[in-house]
């Protein structure tokens, strides 16, 4: 998967009516299989950038080209489909659905991409995460580390070409941070998945070959 952002601008209207510029990125690119960590200050636009790359939000202008497809010009339904099929998302707070078991949470990730009911792959992923004995457990019955591993399995369920991870280790205890991080990186390497990870933790960032500070390529960014 290749990712190329060109002249991305994003602003929000403030309660007073004035506009707050959040992103102004002339250019940003990633190669297929590359693992990049993105650091930046709070409120610097990291999450907004991930939302634009995933198609959840639209940029005011500019293009987001993934695998040669400009997702900015796709209709919303097309962006939803693209996200379901090609982009995995790992959230800071895991965002597992509490009514669903670990296995069902992973299956849920497949539900919107047309890979309905691929239970074998879902089981394989969870087993690979060491959760073979936790398939029928609900999120409330899992430890924080286990929950994050389920979230990673869900993100990888559709064999995405790009994995976006928004501070995936922020809520994991120090002992498990390395495990979670290693797992994500190994899984991406094995499947030739590009990884763009946002983190605040210098120790985590230090493990990556390519570390990008958002403020360095975002012209309206706040340098921490």
């Amino acid at each position: 998967m290749s990712l190329e952002l060109t002249n991305i601008r994003k602003s929000y209207r403030e309660p007073g009516g004035s506009r707050l510029d959040v992103l102004d990125i002339p250019h940003f690119a990633m190669k297929q299989g590359e693992q990049v960590v993105l650091v930046g200050s709070s409120g610097g636009g990291k999450t907004t950038l991930l939302n634009i790359i995933s198609g959840i939000s639209r940029a005011d202008s500019g293009s987001v080209v993934i695998d040669g497809i400009d997702i900015g010009i796709l209709p919303e339904a097309g962006r939803d489909r693209f996200r379901a099929e090609r982009i995995g998302f790992v959230f800071q707070t895991f965002n597992l659905l509490p009514a669903f078991t670990a296995l069902e949470n992973v299956l849920l990730g497949m539900s919107f991409s047309g890979k309905r009911g691929d239970r074998t792959r879902a089981r394989e992923l969870l087993t690979r995460m060491g959760l073979e004995n936790r398939l029928r457990h609900r999120p409330g019955q899992l430890s924080v580390g286990e929950q994050q591993r389920v979230a990673v399995a869900r993100a990888l369920a559709n064999k995405p070409s790009l994995l976006l991870a928004d501070e995936p280790t922020a809520n994991v205890d120090t002992g498990n941070q390395a495990n979670v991080l290693n797992f994500i990186r190994e899984a991406c390497e094995e499947n030739n998945v590009s990884l763009l990870m946002v983190t605040h933790t210098p120790d985590v960032a230090a493990q990556f070959d390519r570390v990008e500070t958002l403020a360095d390529f975002n012209k309206v960014g706040v340098r921490s």
């Binding site: 995933s54 919303e76 939803d80 996200r83 379901a84 998302f89 959230f91 659905l97 849920l108 919107f112």
Partner: peptide, 16 residues
Amino acid sequence: RREIAIMRALGASRQA
């Protein structure tokens, strides 16, 4: 609301 947003983030369309 959050649950729905998660499903949307996972690729669920508005219609879904």
